[in-house]
Amino acid sequence: MISVYHYMTIAAILFAMGTYGVLTRKNAIVIFMCIELMLNSVNLTFIALSRHLNNMDGQIFVFFVMTVAAAEAAVGLALMISFFRNRESIDVEEIDLLKW
């Protein structure tokens, strides 16, 4: 029988994978995909808990998270394009003009 714990575990693993990817990857778009993975693991947590608690709040929250993630993707990809136009790369190791 699949219980809420299984969903929570899967979500936690996905979240950890996303975090690991953000910290180790070099390409800004791959980093952004890892962030999306983190957000979606949160969505999975919300839905599993919502079902478990018999409470709709979690599912409504997921709609908000998805909407915000879409808006964030639009802005983020635009920022990456303008960075690429000037530097011809979106490698985060080349984000190095500003440091102390």
Binding site: G18, T19, I35, T45, E72, V75, G76, S82, F83
Partner: peptide
Amino acid sequence: SNEAGLKYFLLGAFSTGFLLY
């Protein structure tokens, strides 16, 4: 300015993930 925007975006979205979790 590109760098500032991209850096702020990547780290800001990253921290949003933690907040949401």
